[in-house]
């Protein structure tokens, strides 16, 4: 984006034009008044949206931190001060380790697969073949579908008796009987991860497709005439040119995946046991089923701390590229 300056500079040129019969100092005073009015208007415009964001984001965040130092229960839902008790209990509990481990596996697997699949499909859809325009417009469908639909749909696909997953896998001789992929702790997380990959990868496809087609063909031609093969061209020309898009997309999908609630909640609600419990679903369970706002708050604070690493990286990158000017 070209640097643009939108500020009071324009009014100076207005001040240079005197009104008929006006002394220069009168004109300067007039301009000063105008300038003050202008500043006041700018402040006036930014206050309502920022106040709203304060009420909707800053206050809840601060309140969640406060709640994390309190205790409440189903019988006594009003929070009482409890100091660090929640954190002490959480950091020594097995459930926390499970939630942390699940969240890491879930995020890394989904993001990695979305990156690979997104890149591969972007390159594929940039080739010439019959029907590519149709496929291009269809590929976005899983991503625009509300998460609750994707959740119930994949629940049906995985249904042991009625779903096509077992029918296909059984037909190919890959499985015996009718395994309940979502019903057993050993496979539930992997099953949910596959659904999340399906739901989310089209965003990466769209991003990478735009970026891939933006790489100048002359660069590739030049590398080819220097004797590079297709793989070398991809690795040393195409990929570096796409690097900024890839960095941003991976960072954002990481944050979104880590925070994603709908799919897991609808498909398994964190179960069986705690085998698919990730931070958002576990926060929901503690807050709205166990009415332990303090524990939910502490889990929330921990997840914000974990996420802040990615947020800082993202902001730094954005600042470097001038996106904040």
């Amino acid at each position: 984006m070209p640097p643009t300056v939108r500020n009071a500079d324009v009014s100076i040129s207005v001040a240079e034009r005197l009104a008929p019969g006006e002394a220069p100092d009168q004109a300067v005073a007039r301009e000063k008044r105008r300038h003050h009015r202008q500043t006041a208007l700018r402040v006036l415009c930014i206050v309502p949206p920022i106040a709203l964001l304060g009420a909707l984001v800053v206050y809840p965040l601060a309140n969640a931190v406060y709640l994390s130092f309190t205790k409440s229960s189903f019988i006594n839902p009003d929070p009482d001060w409890a100091g660090l008790a929640n954190y002490q209990a959480i950091l020594t509990s097995d459930t926390f380790l499970t939630v942390l481990k699940n969240s890491l596996i879930w995020t890394v697997a989904v993001v990695a697969a979305q990156f690979v699949l997104g890149l591969a499909s972007a390159i594929l859809l940039s080739q010439k073949f019959k029907g590519r325009l149709v496929l291009r417009s269809m590929v976005i469908l899983p991503w625009i579908m509300p998460g609750v639909i994707a959740g119930v749909l994949w629940k049906l696909l995985y249904d042991p008796y009625l779903g096509p997953v077992n029918a296909v896998a059984g037909g190919l001789g890959l499985v015996d009987g009718n395994p309940a992929w979502l019903g057993q702790a050993s496979t539930a997380l992997a099953a949910v991860i596959i659904a999340a990959i399906w739901k989310g990868f089209p965003l990466s496809t769209i991003m990478y497709m735009a970026s891939y087609q933006g790489v100048p063909n002359e660069l590739r031609e030049a590398a080819r005439s220097d004797g590079a093969n297709a793989w070398q061209v991809f690795l040393h020309v195409t990929l570096p040119a796409m690097a900024p898009t890839i960095r941003t997309t991976v960072l954002l999908t990481t944050v979104w995946t880590f925070n994603y609630f709908d799919l897991v909640y609808v498909m398994t609600a964190g179960g069986p046991g705690t085998s698919t419990e990730i931070f958002p679903t576990y926060i929901y369970r503690e807050a709205f089923q166990n009415v332990r706002y303090g524990v939910a708050g502490a889990y929330g604070v921990i997840s914000v701390v974990l996420l802040s690493i990615f947020t800082v990286v993202y902001l730094r990158q954005l600042n470097k590229s001038g996106g904040l000017d």
Partner: peptide, 8 residues
């Protein structure tokens, strides 16, 4: 994470 803001 929206889940954090949810309780407050």
């Amino acid at each position: 994470p929206q889940a954090v803001l949810l309780v407050p």
